Simulated scan of single mutants.
Amino acid sequence: MTRRPPQVHDDDSRLFREAIGEVRPLPEAEALPEKPRPAPHPHMREADEAAVPADAMLFDYDPADLEVGEELSYLRDGYPPRLLKQLKRGQFSIQAEVDLHQMNAAAAQLTISEFLAECRHDGIRCVRIIHGKGLRSKAGGPVLKGLTDRLLRRRDDVVAFASARPMQGGTGAVIVLLKG
Rank of each mutant, 00 (worst) to 15 (best):
T148L: 11
E18N: 15
I130H: 08
A160Q: 00
L84I: 03
H131R: 10
P40I: 10
N104S: 13
A105M: 02
D65F: 08
G123E: 08
S93G: 13
G170T: 08
Q95I: 07
P81F: 02
G134E: 00
T148P: 05
L110W: 12
D12G: 11
S93T: 01
K35W: 01
D60V: 10
G140S: 12
L135G: 05
G172C: 05
A173S: 13
L66N: 07
G69F: 03
R4F: 15
P81S: 05
E118I: 07
V174H: 06
S93L: 06
R153D: 11
P81E: 15
E71G: 14
G134Q: 10
G141R: 01
E118H: 03
E28N: 12
F161G: 00
A96V: 08
C119T: 13
G170E: 15
R3S: 15
I129V: 09
A51H: 07
C119I: 13
D149G: 00
L178P: 04
R76Y: 08
V159N: 09
D62Y: 08
L15V: 10
K145N: 05
E34C: 12
A51K: 04
R165T: 15
A56M: 11
T111E: 01
V23T: 02
A164Q: 11
A105G: 07
M103W: 11
D55M: 09
G169E: 09
E97C: 05
A105D: 07
P142K: 03
G140L: 00
H131A: 04
I130F: 06
R120Y: 07
S73Y: 05
P40R: 10
E28A: 02
K85A: 10
G123P: 01
G170A: 07
H101E: 05
P33W: 02
L83A: 07
L152G: 12
A54T: 00
E67R: 04
P6N: 12
A56T: 08
Y61K: 11
R14D: 12
L116M: 06
G78R: 12
L100M: 08
D65P: 14
A56L: 03
A105F: 10
K88N: 05
H41E: 06
G90Y: 00
Q7F: 14
D99V: 11
A162I: 00
L83Q: 03
P142L: 00
I112R: 01
S93E: 06
R14L: 08
P38H: 04
R76T: 11
P27C: 15
T111P: 03
V98Q: 06
V174A: 14
A56Y: 14
G146A: 01
D156Q: 05
S137Y: 10
L32S: 14
K133E: 04
A139M: 04
E97S: 01
R128S: 12
H43T: 10
A164W: 01
L26N: 13
R4W: 14
E34R: 06
F161H: 15
A117F: 06
Y61A: 13
E67T: 13
P80W: 01
T148Q: 04
C126R: 06
V159L: 09
E118F: 06
A19V: 07
L15H: 15
K85V: 06
Y74K: 10
